[in-house]
Structures are given as C-alpha cells and as structure tokens.
Design a protein around this nucleic acid. Structure first.
Length: 301
DNA sequence: ATGCATGAGGA
DNA sequence: CCTCATGCATA
C-alpha cells in the first residue's frame, strides 16, 4: 500500500502506545523494496520532542534526504573525544557479537571502518603542557567530568540512532555481558546515580553504542526487535501513600532521617501503614537524597 | 521519569 | 537493620 506510512506514537519512555496511518505524498513512494524480510524500520526516523526533550513520537518517512544518516568517511564534529580511561577492567569478551533474532546476516561486502575516530587536531606544546583540565575527581577518584561528558554524548548519539531508552535496555539484553533496564539508562543519562554506578555503566553503554552505530552504518538495523515479555517473579504491589501520609513522613524525616526500629513502628501505626513499607520509605528517601546530591547538583537539565 | 520494592553484603 | 545498586510498575 504505497503512499501510506505509519506514525508511531510513544510516551515519554519511548514505549509504543499506538500507531496511526499516515498518508504521504504518493509520488515519492514507489519503492519496491527488494530486501525487506521482516523488519519494520529500515528508514531514518525523525523524532518529535516535547519541551522537556522527551520523545513523544517518531515519524518514519520513506525515501527522503536523510537528515542524520550514514557518514563514515567524514567527521563533521568530534563527539568522541579521545579520553584516557585509567581503570578499565578490560572485559574478557573480545567480540560479544550481538546475537539477536535476525533472519539473515546477509553478506554485506561493503567494508567498514571499525573505528571512525579521527584526531585531526595538532596539539601544540602549550596544549600538551598546560592542561588545566580540572579533573574534579570525587572521593573515590572518579572523574566526574568525564562521566558527565559521556552521559551527555550518549543521549545525543542514542537519539541520533532513533533509539529509546527502552530499546537500548532491550538490546542490551540480547548482547552478552551486563544488562540494564530502561530505568538504569534513564538514571544514567540524567546522572541520577552514584558516581560509582555511573562508572560501572559507562563502559557497557559505550561499547554497546559503538556497535549500534556500526550496525546503523551498515544498514543492519536488526539490532533489536525483541519483545519477549518473559514472566517475572511476583512482586508486592507498589504502595501508594496519600498526600497526607507523604507530608507526615517528610516531617518525620526532617526531624530524624534515621529513626530507630521503635520509632518506625510508631510512625507506621500512627499513619496506619505497614511497618515494612514505612521502613523502606525511609531507606529510599535517604538513598534518593544521596543520589541527587552528587553528580547531579552541578547541572540543571 | 520516578516511586516503591527487592536482594546482596556489611556490621 | 542499614546502605547500595537495580528494576518493576506506574503517574
């Protein structure tokens, strides 16, 4: 049915919540599309963002001048700045070789440049010598700047690939090594985590992203495609505190963020909530406070 | 994007 | 019990 493209609607997390048929200029769509087995998006996606920069929709248009597409010989910018990584665990996985349910690898004879990184900069002596750098390391000697830099770049590059946090999480499941959820991706991007966690995630995401970009260049967009919703363990239903309860809890927290077991019991009885739920509330409150006062305090996204 | 839950590890 | 790293579920 030429002339009709689909419009995919997603929520803030990039989860597909619906699709709409969309009629486009029929004159531009007559592509027989020979090699098209079962993938949905072999096109360059265009993202629609809201005020908060969240993806609210994805427009998939067909054969039109690709805005942000393949570019391997030239390097318009230098998103990947050469950076030294002091303590890289050096994973013993030489080639994880992303294994996804893809129909056929399809011989793509086109050679690809594995590492499109180019340093066209000729550093001057002064640059080499006097590098103010301001490494701003944290208590554990973690380079916060580097993390922030990468987090920012990661998001940009992820969006350039037209991928959502959810998709990255799913794709990660298919690859070997550590796996992280949409939540983790989200928190990493906004640095709503401890520097320690961030440092752990960085290599994983970096490696994955590089491979994803490579696939993209080769047209092999079959990086993901997996909706395998496997049954998960039963979980206690999330407690929803009333506004009054929240208010009371916050008041208690201000007075004493670390109540004793006895105090917890009293508070729980007072507010008529399960004791364990109240205890966990305090734990989470303390944790949230910590996370949002580290890497995050310096930036205002 | 975030709130509550889970589970490992440490006193 | 606490902290920490994470994730499911939900707003």
């Amino acid at each position: 049915m030429p002339g009709i493209s689909s419009q995919i609607l997603t929520n803030a997390q990039g989860q597909v919540i619906g699709t709409l048929p969309w009629v486009v200029n029929s004159a531009s769509v007559a592509a027989p599309a020979p090699a098209q087995s079962l993938q949905v998006q072999a096109v360059t996606p265009q993202l629609l963002l809201n005020a908060q920069g969240q993806v609210i929709a994805t427009l998939a248009s067909s054969p039109l001048p690709p805005p942000v597409a393949v570019r391997k010989p030239s390097t318009p910018e230098s998103p990947a700045k050469s950076e030294v990584q002091p303590i890289q665990p050096t994973p013993t996985v030489p080639q994880p070789a992303v294994v996804i349910a893809s129909p056929a690898p399809a011989a793509k004879p086109s050679a690809s440049a594995p590492i499109p990184i180019t340093c066209s900069e000729t550093p001057t002596v002064s640059q080499l010598v006097s590098k103010p750098h301001t490494p701003s390391l944290d208590e554990d000697g973690i380079n916060l700047e580097e993390i922030r830099e990468f987090a920012k770049n990661f998001k940009i590059r992820r969006l350039s690939l037209g991928l959502t946090q959810t998709q990255v999480g799913q794709a990660l499941t298919a690859t070997e090594g550590p796996v992280y959820s949409q939540s983790a991706i989200c928190r990493f991007e906004k640095l709503d985590i401890t520097p320690k966690s961030a440092q752990k995630l960085k290599p994983v995401l970096e490696k994955w992203l590089n491979e994803a970009e490579l696939r993209n260049q080769e047209g092999q967009q079959n990086l993901m495609e997996f909706v395998g919703g496997e049954p998960s363990k039963k979980r206690k239903r999330r407690t929803s505190f009333t506004p009054q309860a929240i208010e009371a809890l916050n008041a208690y927290f201000e007075k004493n963020p670390l109540p004793t077991g006895q105090e917890i019991t009293e508070i729980a009885k007072e507010l008529n909530y399960d004791r364990e739920v109240v205890r966990v509330w305090f734990c989470n409150r303390r944790q949230t406070l910590k996370n949002t006062s580290k890497l995050n305090v310096f930036q205002i996204p």
